[in-house]
């Protein structure tokens, strides 16, 4: 059974169509790359799965149930921005997550934070942006869920930190869970991907197994992407 299903989903804002008749299934146990140029609709696609937006037409189901409290319990979302209360300390944030998510593994989070030498009583305000992003990633990956959705986890991060993030993603998500990563920095991430989905102008133009694509075209996913989107705005 696939985890997340988009049925004929379209999203319009006023007169602009951001997503056009999306039919998509996210399978279990795979790392999937949602790739596309800026403005393709990746973030919108993701926000729809998290009930931050409602589809203009069509609907989305999680494990064949409509989105709701049950789906939010089993989806861990890492947005592009810092969504934490910056006036709190790391410890208070851990308390918060533990309080509201019953599948939050506090011990794991503290272990990962320890690896980064982060003091639990630091106020989030006082952390650098890079550190804040790593903290959020740790919080998200410390939840035992079925689907991790990471929206541009590598954006604005220096190359050294990128390795840490990719490694953390690889070694820390639950076995049997799926990870949906949206990014336009493909070269760094493509070795991790099982499947790729190409999104352009609100439409899915490609969905395939990563190695299968490589065998077919004898090039990297990055190359395929560049060729495909050469004429994108």
């Amino acid at each position: 059974m696939s985890l997340l299903q988009y049925h004929h989903v379209s999203k319009r804002f006023g007169n602009t169509t951001v997503l056009d008749n999306i039919n998509l299934e996210i399978p279990t146990g795979k790392i999937i790359g949602l790739l596309g140029p800026n403005g393709a609709g990746k973030s919108t696609l993701i926000k729809l799965a998290n009930t931050l937006l409602t589809p203009t037409t069509g609907n989305i189901t999680f494990q064949n149930q409509p989105l709701g409290v049950a789906s939010k319990t089993e989806i861990a979302y890492l947005p592009e921005r810092t969504y934490l209360d910056k006036t709190r300390t790391i410890r208070q944030t851990l308390d918060f997550f533990q309080n509201f998510y019953h599948n939050f593994d506090r011990a794991k989070a503290e272990r990962l934070l320890d690896d980064l030498d982060l003091q639990l009583d630091t106020q989030i305000l006082h952390m650098s942006k890079g550190m804040q992003e790593k903290l959020q990633l740790i919080l998200v990956l410390s939840r035992h869920v079925k689907l991790y959705i990471l929206d541009e986890p590598l954006g604005g991060i220096d190359p050294a930190a990128r390795d840490y993030i990719l490694d953390t993603i690889l070694t820390n998500f639950d076995e049997g869970a799926s990870v949906l990563i949206s990014t336009h920095l493909i070269a760094d991430i493509e070795k991790l991907l099982d499947e790729v989905i190409f999104l352009q102008n609100g439409k899915i133009i490609l969905q395939d197994d990563a190695d299968h694509l490589r065998a077919q075209t004898q090039t990297s996913i990055d190359e395929i992407f560049r060729k495909e989107f050469k004429n994108a705005r």
């Binding site: 190695d211 299968h212 490589r214 065998a215 004898q218 996913i221 990055d222 190359e223």
Partner: peptide
């Protein structure tokens, strides 16, 4: 050591 141009599993 892997490159991105060939199927990873083959490499």
């Amino acid at each position: 050591k892997f490159n991105n141009e060939k199927p990873i599993y083959l490499q």
